[in-house]
Amino acid sequence: MDLQPATIELKDVTKIYRMGDIEVGALRDVSVSIQAGEMVAIMGASGSGKSTMMNILGCLDVPTSGAYLLEGENVGQLGDNRLAEIRNRKIGFVFQTYNLLPRLTALANVELPLLYGNGHDRRRRAMTALSRVGLADRVSHRPTELSGGQQQRVGIARALVKEPSIVLADEPTGNLDSQSTEEVMAILQDLNHREGLTVIIVTHEPDIAAATRRVITMLDGRVVDDHTLE
């Protein structure tokens, strides 16, 4: 297990999108710091900037201004290839719509991140990740043959397979029934408690946020509330 401290540090991060002649400030002077091993929920209505925040935290996008230090490295000004490497090594994504490749089996989907970068021992590592989410008996099923909850667990296994330090989950339970929601949240909490992974969940459901220890609330591109639950 990778136990080095995963520190996320946003300093005065601003993100401006251009739509024709109009500039839209999706993030304005956001400064947030997240310690290694924290479990954080980012809340906010749609348009509040939480998705933009997610994209920047996940190195899918870079800030217009300000600094983003990921484990001490300023990733805000890196090029596409370096960002791809960081996503591959340090970040595991979990998506609301699972984003599994429909043609591939569960195992092949989990192997996907291993195709890029350091990819030795793909089968064994993917098997291990699937076992961790309790799907060792579903390896050769395709996404269409799995329930929503099972698909999302495959998604989590895929996020874990490279043993990242941060798991970023974007509305991970948005498409799930209550039982699957519990299962998925239990897995995410388990990863945080037992393995010390930094877990960041973007959600608009207070129930989900309540399962975390810290809730950051956003409105109009700004952090309006940041409190730690006891």
Partner: peptide
């Protein structure tokens, strides 16, 4: 397009 997006999110580079 979506597959490309997924692969890129998983760390595929432009060249890949």
């Amino acid at each position: 397009t979506r597959e490309i997006g997924i692969r890129k999110a998983m760390g595929a580079k432009r060249r890949d």
